[in-house]
Simulated scan of single mutants.
Amino acid sequence: MNAPLKLTDRKRQAIVDAAIAEFRASGFESTSMDKIAATAGVSKRTVYNHFPSKDELFEQILHELWNSTAAVGPAPYDPARPLREQLLELLNKKMELLHDAYFLDLARVAIAEGIHSPQRAQEMVARLSAKEEAVTNWLRAAQADGKFARADPFIVSQMLQGQLKTFAFWPQVTMGQPPLDPEMRDKVVEATVEMFLAYANATA
């Protein structure tokens, strides 16, 4: 059981939540620290005590986004287990993240700001690519174990993760579509794994 958050931590989280809501509604540039304070139910001074600037508050949102992606990294490749079984487990974990409402809110804010600030967009792409490198490394380990030879691990990593995002991320983030139901989630994951196994001539 997690210990209850201290008052200062609750206020800090309320500020972050309020910033996410206001950035989504009005955009980064149009959102004032006054509005964030009002939405969070705290004083403007309290906001500045936690975050000296709006840029630092946005950085905190990005930090939480990166931490969310890191939390669902793949388990180490296990040569004693079937490849198909491990791939299903890996992609199901990724699918869980893509259906987390808080993660999707963070992603919407980050993507919207990235559109208006090319420099921020470049930084986000670089940091996300570094996070997703864990899947590439997992595939390299499977390839070194002789499970598949045809596919390039980096390309396949992007294809595997991109396939999930086609159904369970981009429509929800950009068009407000509802999350996939459990049956559809399973179908997408299973189809993605089967396509990989067939393409890579992998040993399941």
Rank of each mutant, 00 (worst) to 15 (best):
M1K: 08
P4S: 00
P4A: 05
K6V: 05
K6L: 14
L7A: 06
T8N: 13
R10S: 11
R10F: 03
K11P: 07
K11H: 12
R12Q: 10
R12H: 03
A14C: 07
I15D: 03
A18M: 07
A19M: 04
I20Y: 07
A21V: 12
E22T: 06
R24D: 10
R24E: 13
A25I: 02
S26G: 10
S26C: 13
G27C: 00
F28M: 02
S30I: 14
S30C: 14
T31S: 08
T31G: 02
S32G: 14
S32N: 10
S32P: 05
D34V: 02
I36D: 08
A37Y: 00
A38Y: 04
R45K: 10
T46R: 00
V47W: 00
V47H: 02
V47A: 02
V47I: 06
N49K: 04
E56H: 14
L57A: 06
E59M: 13
Q60A: 14
I61G: 13
H63V: 09
E64S: 09
E64Q: 10
L65C: 03
W66V: 09
W66D: 08
T69M: 03
T69E: 02
A70W: 11
A75R: 15
P76S: 02
P76N: 00
P79H: 08
A80N: 05
A80C: 00
L83E: 00
R84T: 07
E85Q: 12
E85T: 14
Q86R: 12
L87Q: 04
L87V: 00
L87R: 10
L88E: 13
L90E: 00
N92P: 15
K93S: 09
M95A: 03
E96D: 12
L97K: 06
L97G: 07
L98M: 04
A101P: 09
Y102K: 05
F103L: 02
L106V: 04
A107V: 06
A107W: 06
A107E: 06
V109W: 15
A112W: 11
E113Y: 15
G114L: 05
H116M: 08
H116F: 05
S117V: 13
S117W: 10
A121Y: 14
A121S: 10
V125D: 13
V125N: 12
A126K: 05
R127H: 13
A130L: 04
A130W: 08
K131C: 14
K131W: 09
E132N: 11
A134G: 04
V135F: 04
V135R: 01
T136D: 15
W138M: 03
W138E: 04
L139I: 07
R140M: 13
A142G: 12
Q143R: 11
D145W: 04
G146M: 09
K147D: 09
F154E: 02
F154G: 02
V156Q: 11
Q158I: 09
L160T: 05
Q161L: 09
L164F: 06
K165V: 06
K165G: 00
T166G: 01
T166W: 15
F169Y: 06
P171L: 04
V173Y: 07
V173D: 03
V173W: 05
G176F: 08
Q177L: 07
P179N: 00
E183H: 15
D186P: 08
D186C: 14
D186A: 10
V188P: 01
V188S: 03
E190S: 12
E190F: 09
A191C: 10
V193P: 00
M195N: 14
F196N: 01
Y199C: 03
A200D: 00
A200P: 08
N201Q: 15
T203D: 12
